[in-house]
């Protein structure tokens, strides 16, 4: 996790340096906006997801996928339903590391940075509530 943040920061430092040399008079707010917008660009990386079925839930033919880190988690839910041939409004529950269900608007990159194991974000899925 630390390494990916460092990578972001490296890119930011370059942006900031060019800002400082080009526009010495740029206001603090412009500087902040510039740094923040390079965060958004940085999220163009792809991260790996690994799916595991719980109980009698249908299996996937392939269970490893790469996805854009800037997407929200609901993208994963929609994607998995499609892969399994489920209707969009059907019930499907996804748990990170067999522990918690992220909110649909959490950012995949954040989940990956905090909870990935050996380079994969592990997502367990099932049709019925697996645990309380």
């Amino acid at each position: 996790m630390a390494s990916s943040i460092n990578a972001v920061e490296d890119q930011l430092s370059k942006t900031l340096e060019s800002l400082q040399t080009e526009e010495k008079s740029s206001s603090l707010q412009e500087k902040i906006d510039e740094i923040i917008s390079s965060y958004n660009e940085k999220e163009n990386r792809k991260v790996n997801l690994r799916f595991k079925a719980i109980g009698r839930t249908p299996l996937l033919r392939k269970n490893v996928f790469a996805i854009n880190a800037s997407h929200r988690f609901d993208k994963v839910i929609r994607f998995l339903k499609k892969e399994l041939g489920f209707k969009p409004d059907s019930s499907l529950l996804l748990y990170v590391n067999y522990c918690f269900a992220p909110a649909p608007d959490e950012i995949i990159g954040n989940l990956y940075d905090n909870f990935s194991v050996d380079g994969y974000l592990l997502i367990y899925y099932c049709v019925n509530v697996a645990f309380g």
């Binding site: 996790m1 943040i5 902040i32 923040i36 965060y39 958004n40 999220e43 950012i107 954040n110 989940l111 940075d113 905090n114």
Partner: peptide, 9 residues
Amino acid sequence: GADAPIVQS
């Protein structure tokens, strides 16, 4: 920021 990313850490 309001329209900026969240850094979860």
